[in-house]
């Protein structure tokens, strides 16, 4: 079972009400299809290096994880920051979709398996890991330590990670076309005018 993380409560947007903590907002900020989630955690004393060890993957492990992330195609980025002399951990991520409606999916996915390995070294999360928690308790743990961004900006506004992946594939293909003999002539076709305009550089 989960213990309350008193130290973290002053970092959240929750306010004490009649002595009982109020639930955090269910989700972070959202711009277009993209949401952000920032979770501030306190590291259990002496566990900083254990977290660094978990986050330090072998090249094979990293490749496997990157492939899994790419295949799902909804994560834009994730950052894990140990700060305050390694006493605190920031988990900051941006992804497509909402956080709160996907909590059960998250709990059933490989992401929680990956996070569980370092969350056990954070205050308020049991050493036994997720096996000892319900999904609702995991959700409460994360949202209780989550702080909604005051501002959230994406350069590629309104675009999902999948659309960015697709755009990159299209550009790779386009560059291949430009490197093909006869490309200039082929692009003269009126149907390809928008592409011809992109072909000069």
């Amino acid at each position: 079972m989960l213990e309350t993380q008193q130290e973290a409560s002053d970092m959240t947007t929750t306010e004490p009400q009649n002595g009982t903590p109020v639930r955090s907002p269910r989700k972070g900020a959202r711009t277009g299809p993209v949401s952000e989630l920032s979770v501030f955690l306190n590291v259990k004393p002496g566990r900083e290096q254990l977290i660094r060890d978990v986050l330090h993957m072998t090249p094979a492990e990293r490749a496997a994880m990157e492939k899994a992330i790419f295949d799902v195609g909804s994560l834009h980025q994730a950052r894990y920051v140990l700060f305050d002399n390694g006493s605190r951990l920031l988990v900051a991520t941006t992804f497509d979709g909402d956080w709160d409606v996907y909590i059960d999916d998250f709990a059933a996915s490989y992401i929680l398996d990956a996070w569980d390995a370092f969350l056990i070294h954070c205050e308020g999360y049991p050493d036994e890991g997720k096996a000892s928690l319900t999904v609702e308790e995991i959700k409460e743990f994360l949202t209780a330590n989550q702080v909604t961004a005051a501002d959230f900006y994406m350069t590629y506004s309104g675009v999902t990670a999948k659309e960015i992946q697709k755009a990159l594939r299209v550009d790779t293909a386009f560059q291949q076309v430009l490197d093909t003999p006869g490309a200039a002539e082929a692009l003269q076709n009126p149907a390809l005018k928008p592409l011809l305009e992109l072909a000069v550089n």
């Binding site: 277009g32 299809p33 195609g73 909804s74 497509d96 979709g97 909402d98 409606v101 309104g158 999902t160 990670a161 999948k162 659309e163 697709k166």
Partner: peptide, 12 residues
């Protein structure tokens, strides 16, 4: 998520 939006398969 599935009917009113297409974000879940990358096409919002």
């Amino acid at each position: 998520q599935w009917i009113d939006e297409g974000t879940f398969f990358g096409t919002p």
